[in-house]
Computed example of a mutant assay.
Amino acid sequence: MTRFEVITGIAAPPRHVFDLSLDVGVHTASMAGSGERIVGGVTSGRMRLGDTVTWQARHFGLPWRMTSRISAFDPPGYFVDEQVEGPFRRWRHEHHFEPDGTGGTVMRDVVDFAAPLGPLGRLAELLVLDRYMPRLIRLRNEHLMRSGLQS
């Protein structure tokens, strides 16, 4: 299993960044490079506690589908999305939002995941996913930074 953190500063208040992070349209736009789209569950607007969404995308040239649920929710400081069904043996993504003292937000993503297939999955984590997944989160956060400044 892999655990990583990504810390991002965003020049917008925590409530605004929290709301943007739950907006499925903002998420879809942030993952445009992988052709990510919604194929089930919440299809527009902001997700709330208990909501699910099913995403479909292409990674490594292969189609992937994952359904995640908002399993914890404490606005505007924290929410968690977890895989209900999909390619990982485990996927848990904690989103933390704290004031930075200047009107902006320190956003901290904590991701725990494990690939399927036992030792082969662990090898995929070590060789590819341990670098690829944090890069995807940083890409998403760069989009959130731009969206936070525009709104």
Rank of each mutant, 00 (worst) to 15 (best):
M1D: 12
R3I: 14
E5R: 15
V6T: 12
G9K: 14
I10D: 00
A11F: 00
A12T: 01
P13L: 02
P13H: 07
R15L: 01
F18Q: 00
L20P: 00
L22E: 03
V24G: 04
V26M: 12
V26C: 06
H27Q: 15
A29C: 06
S30M: 05
M31A: 09
M31H: 04
G33K: 06
G35K: 10
G35Y: 09
R37E: 09
I38P: 05
T43H: 12
M47S: 07
M47H: 05
R48Q: 12
L49D: 00
G50E: 00
G50Q: 05
D51K: 07
D51A: 09
T54S: 09
W55L: 10
Q56E: 10
A57I: 06
R58M: 03
H59L: 12
F60L: 14
L62V: 00
L62T: 00
P63I: 06
W64K: 05
W64F: 13
M66T: 12
M66C: 14
T67E: 06
T67S: 07
S68Q: 13
I70A: 02
F73L: 05
D74E: 15
D74V: 14
P75T: 06
P76E: 02
G77M: 08
G77N: 11
Y78F: 15
V80E: 01
E82Y: 06
Q83Y: 11
V84I: 12
P87H: 11
P87K: 10
R89E: 15
R89N: 14
R89I: 08
R90W: 12
R90K: 15
H93V: 10
E94L: 08
H95T: 11
H96F: 12
H96A: 13
F97A: 04
E98F: 04
E98N: 11
G103D: 02
G103L: 04
G104V: 01
T105P: 03
V106I: 14
V106G: 01
D109T: 00
D109F: 07
V110P: 01
V111L: 14
D112L: 12
D112K: 10
F113I: 11
A114Y: 10
L117W: 14
G118L: 11
G121L: 11
R122M: 15
L123V: 13
L123W: 15
L123R: 14
L123C: 13
A124D: 07
E125W: 13
L126E: 11
L129R: 04
D130C: 14
R131G: 09
P134R: 11
L136N: 07
R138K: 13
L139H: 05
L139M: 04
R140C: 06
E142S: 02
R146V: 07
S147A: 15
G148S: 03
G148A: 07
S151K: 00
